[in-house]
Design a protein around this nucleic acid. Structure first.
Lengths: 239, 239
DNA sequence: AGAAAACTACACCAGAGGGTTTAGTTTTCG
DNA sequence: CGAAAACTAAACCCTCTGGTGTAGTTTTCT
């Protein structure tokens, strides 16, 4: 019925496929899955409608591919950035301040999660989760799980160095993400309106502060000051 | 253009209106706003299609009413339960254990937020937020804000009694809700599959524990043990 | 009782959207 | 070059759906 590649030989025209996928992402983002029209997708992609059906079995297959690709792209984007900055070779003890590192990680995660594509994926996933439960599982497995695992591993290393007091790194990772996200979804109206950089900084600051109050070693807790890393360019929803 | 009551005199037939709204909620929940059909809503409500249009201007007006009513109902349900249990007349210092109180509040909030109606509202809101930003604001103002305010007020009272160390009750309330919700949305696939009661208890337990580690007074922190209150009947997604 | 309002069943319209077909053109590759 | 594959434009089919009109029936209020 539906293999990932239903055309046995797909030579040459990869560019069209990419164009279709990108246009589909945009139209789905704007109109939602049910209201999105193949005609509009085809037009936006600069392609005729039958060509769309030449690349994808049907509308749902196209949608699933868009979601899968997006989740994969988001996850690799964030995990790779995470690895180059806080990879296993990195020694957390050599860093100046834990709060600063946590804040940097927070901005790393949020810059991806709060990007246009991240929001779009979340909204579409929410909208269709009830009708496509398997797609939900797939996207979470591709997008959410790897990120949390990377974060949990890093937190565990911090804990091993005695820089944090963490019992269950998985739980701590979830809670860290929950804390730094906080009210941002509500404030940005699920990504449909821009959020000020200062609000973002405040959210991260508050989340990191609370996280440290909970997980810092019990001795003296020094004051926490957070500032956004200059390296991370803000996504378009974060002006 | 569109008043809340476009029929100047609406006598008598309130039952039909209720039936339509309830049927609409169900059909919207199942099919999503764009794919839902007025015909199906009318049939499910035991009403003819023109009657639907006699009560509501158009499909979007019906949808907005459904969302507004749902948000209001959810909010009053939770705030009233909260007030009767932890109202301003209540003296938090007279209670046995703060962890237990926090857990009780957590179950109160989650039982509402994770109910079928709560999930439905969230999914529909997510799905249409991009197309109806004003509806988003309205629903958040009706549903989310009052709950957070009630929670923040209660936390502030706890802090005044010296039972918690909280700088900003609003932030603490947000973080509390974020912590106790945690992975539950992902685990229940946004409410589309049941969640075990033990998982719910574990989530609340972890959230409350971390919250207390962050906000309990700095002196000795006694061990935290959480158990669900027997009074709160689990919603259907929480078996 | 009687009038007004609400409701019902049913037919109807117009538009849109998924998906296919046809016939002809361009690209690719051996 | 020449054939296979991919692409295009356009028309087409079919179903669904939002929304309306008509004509007759029930409810409700005075």
């Amino acid at each position: 019925m539906a293999g990932t590649e239903h055309r046995p030989i797909s030579r040459g025209r990869v560019a069209k496929r990419e164009a279709i996928l990108e246009a589909a992402m945009r139209v789905f983002a704007q109109d939602g899955y049910p209201a999105a029209g193949i005609d509009r997708i085809a037009t936006l992609a600069g392609v005729s409608k039958p060509t769309v059906y030449n690349h994808f079995d049907d509308k749902e297959s196209l949608f699933r591919t868009v979601m899968r690709d997006g989740a994969r792209r988001s996850a690799t984007k964030i995990t790779s950035a995470f690895d180059t900055r806080f990879g296993a070779a990195d020694d957390p003890a050599g860093r100046p301040d834990i709060a600063e590192q946590l804040a940097e990680v927070a901005f790393l995660v949020l810059d991806c999660q709060l990007s246009d594509e991240g929001w779009t994926l979340q909204r579409l996933l929410y909208a269709e989760a009830a009708r496509m439960p398997d797609l939900y599982d797939e996207v979470v497995g591709l997008g959410g799980v790897p990120v949390r695992n990377a974060l949990a591993g890093w937190l565990a290393r911090l804990a091993n160095r005695g820089l944090l007091e963490i019992e269950d790194p998985e739980v701590a990772a979830s809670q860290f993400m929950a804390l730094i996200a906080g009210d941002l979804p509500a404030m940005s109206a699920l990504g449909t309106r821009p959020i000020s950089r200062s609000a973002l900084v405040a959210a991260v600051d508050g989340g990191v502060r609370t996280f440290l109050r909970a997980f810092a070693p019990r001795r003296r807790s020094r004051a926490v000051q957070v500032r956004p890393p200059a390296t991370s360019a803000g996504p378009s929803t974060v002006g």
